[in-house]
């Protein structure tokens, strides 16, 4: 009889599983479908942690519902291309200008109205009116003032090639913003100059890190003296700490790349009006202040105020280029791999 009981007992996991299955199926059936009336769908290459508060405020203010899909910028762009005419996306909110440039080149972006575009300086938007920059990130050199003074830093990036900087500089070759920066170099300085500089840096023992944050940590710890990073990491990292960090950003006098996170409307969108409303919202005072206060990025709308911790945007000398051209990422990756940096 005991055997019989264990026999029955062995079915208990099965029954439990069945129960869970019924619950799950119920959940599945009740799951809401996308309702396109008075709603927009956003494909976002920017992460949920950064963007969701803005989205919530937008819905609160306008009553427009937002369906948002988060993912990597390039994957989202590839998805939009693959979806073709049936793409459910109204808006593509990209982390960097390169992916916007790629979609623009593929003819998948609808032109934005003139008055909206004029909110932003021409250097931070598409000359073809296809996308508009919302917030910006500057490439800087993070240094440890306890070890070196700003005067000791070179005038521009090429200075780090000098023997005195051997083994004292860190970069993150696998990181997207570093790669965008190299792409910009290729566009503005040409392929050969870029290759020479990269090779020189590598020969000079520049240390590779996985991401930007470990670089800042390494500079803070004195492991290296300078790190090539985006400007906002210092501020973001400071937020999570009790003690004041020593690391400071150095902005070069010229050719400071400011890459943008930008918004665009997909050509197949059936809700272009609502989508336009959202893009306007991103450039309105409220949203721009959010970037100023929370992400330490540069708000790009002309009226917006820069965070006092940062040098004003107009003082930054950016390279003379269309940011759409950052879409030639493949060439950059090939170059980095050729040199054995990646």
């Amino acid at each position: 009889m005991k055997k019989k009981l264990t026999h029955v007992a062995s079915y208990i996991p099965l029954l439990l599983l069945l129960l869970v299955g019924i619950v799950l199926t119920g959940r599945f059936l009740l799951m809401e479908r996308v309702d396109t009336r008075n709603a927009i769908t956003i494909y976002s290459g920017r992460s949920e942690d950064l963007i969701q508060p803005l989205i919530d405020r937008f819905t609160e203010e306008t009553g427009i519902r937002v369906y948002i899909r988060y993912g990597q910028t390039a994957e989202m762009a590839a998805t939009i291309l693959e979806e073709g005419r049936n793409s459910p996306a109204d808006i593509f909110f990209a982390q960097d200008a390169g992916a916007l440039g790629a979609l623009s080149r593929a003819g998948r972006l609808a032109p934005l109205p003139e008055d909206l575009l004029e909110e932003v300086e021409p250097r931070f938007r598409s000359p073809k009116h296809h996308w508009i920059g919302v917030s910006g990130r500057a490439r800087v050199a993070a240094y440890n003032p306890h070890r070196i003074s700003p005067e000791q830093l070179p005038e521009d990036l090429s200075g780090f090639c000098a023997p005195e900087w051997q083994g004292r500089v860190g970069w993150a070759p696998a990181n997207g913003s570093f790669q965008a920066f190299v792409t910009a170099l290729r566009v503005t300085q040409g392929e050969e100059a870029t290759r020479t500089w990269l090779a020189c840096m590598q020969a000079n023992g520049t240390r590779a890190y996985a991401k930007n944050t470990p670089i800042i940590a390494a500079v803070e710890a004195g492991e290296i003296d300078v790190g090539l990073v985006n400007h906002y990491y210092i501020h973001a990292m400071q937020q999570g700490r009790q003690t004041t960090m020593h690391v400071r950003n150095h902005y070069f006098a010229s050719d400071v790349l400011v890459n943008v996170a930008g918004a665009s409307i997909i050509d197949t969108s059936g809700n272009k009006d609502l989508a336009e409303q959202f893009v306007r919202y991103l450039l309105a005072a409220d949203a721009q202040r959010y970037f100023t206060d929370h992400t330490y990025e540069y708000p790009l709308a002309a009226h917006a105020e820069t965070n006092p911790a940062l040098p004003p945007l107009r003082t930054l000398q950016t390279p003379d280029m269309d940011l759409s051209e950052l879409d030639d990422l493949e060439g950059t990756l090939r170059l980095l791999q050729d040199l054995g940096i990646l």
Binding site: A74, E75, A77, A210, D327, D328, L329
Partner: peptide, 20 residues
């Protein structure tokens, strides 16, 4: 881990060049 594997080459085509 920055190993140049084949999947990385595929990703570069998708994400770097958007060349499906």
């Amino acid at each position: 881990l920055q190993f140049n594997a084949f999947t990385r080459a595929i990703y570069v085509q998708y994400t770097g060049a958007l060349d499906r």
